[in-house]
Amino acid sequence: MKPSITIEYCPKCGWMLRAAYMAQELLTTFADDLHSVTLQPSEVSGRYSIRVNDDTVFDRKREGRFPEIKELKQLIRDQVNPGKDLGHSEKKSD
């Protein structure tokens, strides 16, 4: 079965639009690779985390920041389709 992504966000902090934008980007990039992307209002203030199934791939409190969309796509790709080319979103080596 294809994986599901959950974006848990704090509605009191006004992070719903950020979560919706990230969900749209993931659905566009991984249209054939995902079962769903769910937006989940958190009951915990300040929470912004992203999970693939039950594995947390990004947590705002742990990282001390929000993910960049390029970074998020790479994290999701590594979980759902490691061989997928992300084009311009791909890491460039120095």
Rank of each mutant, 00 (worst) to 15 (best):
M1P: 14
K2T: 11
S4A: 15
T6C: 09
I7Q: 01
I7E: 03
E8T: 15
Y9M: 01
C10K: 08
P11C: 03
P11E: 04
P11H: 07
G14E: 15
W15Y: 01
M16H: 08
R18D: 05
A19N: 07
A20W: 10
A20Q: 14
A20P: 02
M22G: 01
L27A: 10
L27K: 15
T28K: 14
T29D: 03
F30H: 01
D32A: 14
D33V: 03
V37Y: 00
V37M: 01
V37W: 00
T38M: 12
T38Y: 12
P41S: 08
P41D: 10
S42G: 07
S42A: 11
E43G: 13
V44S: 12
Y48H: 12
S49M: 13
I50C: 07
N53A: 14
N53L: 08
D54N: 15
D55Y: 13
F58N: 05
F58C: 04
D59P: 05
D59S: 13
D59W: 04
R60L: 07
R60Q: 13
K61E: 14
R62Y: 08
E63C: 09
G64S: 07
R65Y: 06
I69M: 05
I69P: 00
K70A: 04
K70Y: 00
L72Y: 01
L72N: 00
K73C: 06
K73V: 00
Q74F: 07
L75V: 02
I76G: 03
I76P: 01
R77I: 00
R77W: 02
D78P: 00
Q79F: 11
Q79T: 07
N81S: 15
N81F: 12
G83C: 13
G83H: 15
K84Q: 07
K84G: 04
D85T: 09
D85F: 08
G87A: 09
H88V: 03
E90N: 06
K92D: 05
K92E: 09
S93Y: 03
S93D: 10
D94S: 09
D94A: 10
